[in-house]
Write a protein that binds this DNA or RNA. Structure first.
Lengths: 363, 363
DNA sequence: ATCATAAATGGTCTCGTGGCCATCATTGAA
DNA sequence: TTCAATGATGGCCACGAGACCATTTATGAT
């Protein structure tokens, strides 16, 4: 036991009396070498004679020494830490994304710090600050709605952080991104429903630049137009990506005098709300109504009928994002690429031709 | 623009040329005060004359200065960072736990670092090391199975970290803990099924000290005994808490010559596997079989029939855990309390009296 | 006017590690 | 024997903020 008397330093909190943790100096002292030599045992061991190396390693083992990452990163400016901002960690899409991205980054020696913005740029602003306080080297962000964090993201980039947006990308955002091909997915969804004979189709959420600027909502009317359809004004209602608002909106839409015959939920969470509302109204899928949703969550295959979904390549998206981070941090490659990944329509049993066929048909 | 020429220091990575981030010295220089005074503008502003304060604040705003948390924590030994080890972040129980605990800790100025152990102490060991490398002040851990991390947890405690276990607690573990009252929940579940007339009840997983040391499995036979029932040897099969193993086990159990009339899934994820297997065998709930599961996940209310569940007070558990951390870190209160929280049986429609009533009945 | 007191401000060291340069020892060749 | 080259090791400072003590300045009482 060396180390104890050398310095009479007391930590502020009484809990830490006697709790000094071994550092590289203690290791060096115990091994009878200089701190520099001790460090080399960790960083480039071949530079030491086998005997010295063994002695230092013995000391490390004896003291249970483990380097302090904070101190190590202090000099370089950034830490081997990456921030991940998700909208909501309880949303499986984000949980899976976090897991996949985290694994890749960890394998490369980075630690992920996750935070939530609840789809709000205002909350995001605070989270970004916290992450910057930790001097993360990069931030993967699913941007929240609103302008409150945009300027700050730019400032972070100027400070040397690598910023990447995923899942959502504000208009004209200059940051590299990893996105689902929302337009193509929406086209495929609409085309599929149209082919079944639907003309009165509603998406759970209409585009709104402030409240609901989602690409899926924006491209829905375009996809409809491509099939020669249009979205009735009564169906155009702004909502959020939460279960409750989707539930309320579904009730509203199905209460119309000319209700939609097919519903497209934009996320798996929305689909839960829609599903609840549909059941409450005593409607049966797919006879009374067709339902299609983004996100291939486990439960969608479990309910009756199993729900037709558009599956997102979550792992591939997370991997693309993580690899972009590694390229930027380790190879200095400041790409500004916008990666777009394809989704996949998985047809199950929640969609069928509409009951009472109206005027339009064919395509 | 001060700061540029003062030091000709170049960061190792070329990306950081010219990217020096403002520190408190830069602020002080710009405001024309000493670094100490500049710091005080942040920590105890009342100690400054209003004019000086304003000048420093102006400088802070102009430079966009934000303190480096790493440097700040270096001196004190620990950082304002807390590690959270979950088994799997895609399991909603853990995602919710992480969210709730994270919010409380963040509100108190801490940052949460999440990592996964996949129910394995071996993997956990590595994650703990990573967390310790960041010098987290505390670790909330859902322990993985196996001995590989126990000694290390003790060492971390000796180094001053506050360790708390939640959701699972190895036998004789000395660390404070926050647990569901698994025994009571299991008793209630078994009593409920028994009251419906079931005698052939199986839990999805039998206690095994190495592979499956879950309290729920351990207390299941006890709960059965209290109702005068016993668990047939054929039902006693060791499994894991994953969907696939639960799926396989359900198939096995239902393939027996005397299959159980009621199944208890130990987690929501297990329930998904069980549900799939039940459906594949063409069995109908609750007529052919009763199913009851831990975890009140959203989908359990959505499927047909809605599944009877035991709800865990996830938020309360997370809050209890987070508060324990804050008490330990801020008030120096090293409690070793084992908190146990009650679950709640939510009866829905997946349980009914068994079809062909065998010998036993009543209770 | 003088001194005591408190308020405001500054100086200096610490934390643990990484990077760079200096030093010392050893070896082999001229 | 001397010199150069190489290998092994050590010294020193930077990083950014916190803690503590020292110093300067203002205030008020005697």
């Amino acid at each position: 036991m060396a180390s104890q008397q050398q310095k009479p330093f007391l930590f502020p909190a009484s809990r830490f009396y006697n709790r000094r943790v071994a550092n590289i100096q203690d290791v060096a002292r115990l091994a009878g070498v200089s701190p520099t030599t001790a460090k080399r045992a960790l960083r480039d061991p071949d530079k030491l004679t086998p005997e010295t190396l063994a002695r230092v390693q013995q000391a490390i083992a004896q003291l249970g020494y483990e380097p302090d990452q904070r101190a190590g990163s202090l000099r370089g400016g950034q830490s081997r830490t990456v921030g991940l901002v998700v909208a909501s960690i309880v949303e499986p899409f984000f949980a899976q994304f976090a897991r996949s991205a985290g694994r890749i980054l960890q394998a490369a020696g980075y630690t992920l710090i996750i935070s939530e913005n609840e789809y709000s740029a205002r909350l995001e602003r605070g989270e970004l600050s916290r992450l910057y306080g930790q001097r993360v080297a990069a931030i993967l962000v699913r941007p929240g709605y609103g302008p409150e964090s945009r300027e700050y993201l730019h400032r972070l980039r100027e400070r040397g952080l690598f910023i990447l947006e995923y899942d959502y990308r504000p208009p004209d955002s200059p940051f590299p991104s990893v996105m689902l091909d929302n337009a193509a997915c929406m086209r495929e969804a609409v085309a599929y429903l149209h082919a079944l004979g639907h003309t009165r189709i509603a998406a759970l959420g209409t585009y709104d630049p402030e409240i609901h600027p989602e690409e899926r909502s924006r491209t829905f009317p375009e996809a409809m137009r491509e099939c020669g359809l249009s979205v009735p004004a009564a169906y155009q209602r702004v909502t959020l990506l939460t279960e409750d608002t989707a539930y309320a909106l579904t009730h509203e839409l199905l209460g119309l005098s000319e209700p939609p015959t097919a519903l497209i939920a934009l996320t798996g969470t929305q689909a839960i709300g829609a599903f609840r509302a549909i059941r409450e109204r005593g409607l049966h899928l797919p006879g009374d109504l067709s339902l299609l949703t983004f996100d291939n969550y486990p439960w969608t295959a479990l309910v009756d009928p199993p729900v037709t979904v558009i599956e997102q390549p979550v792992e591939a998206m997370a991997e693309a994002a993580a690899r972009a981070v590694l390229r930027a941090l380790e190879e200095d490659e400041t790409s500004t690429a916008h990666q777009v990944l394809a989704g996949r329509l998985i047809v199950r049993d929640s969609c069928a031709p509409p009951r009472r066929v109206g005027a339009a048909a064919g395509c």
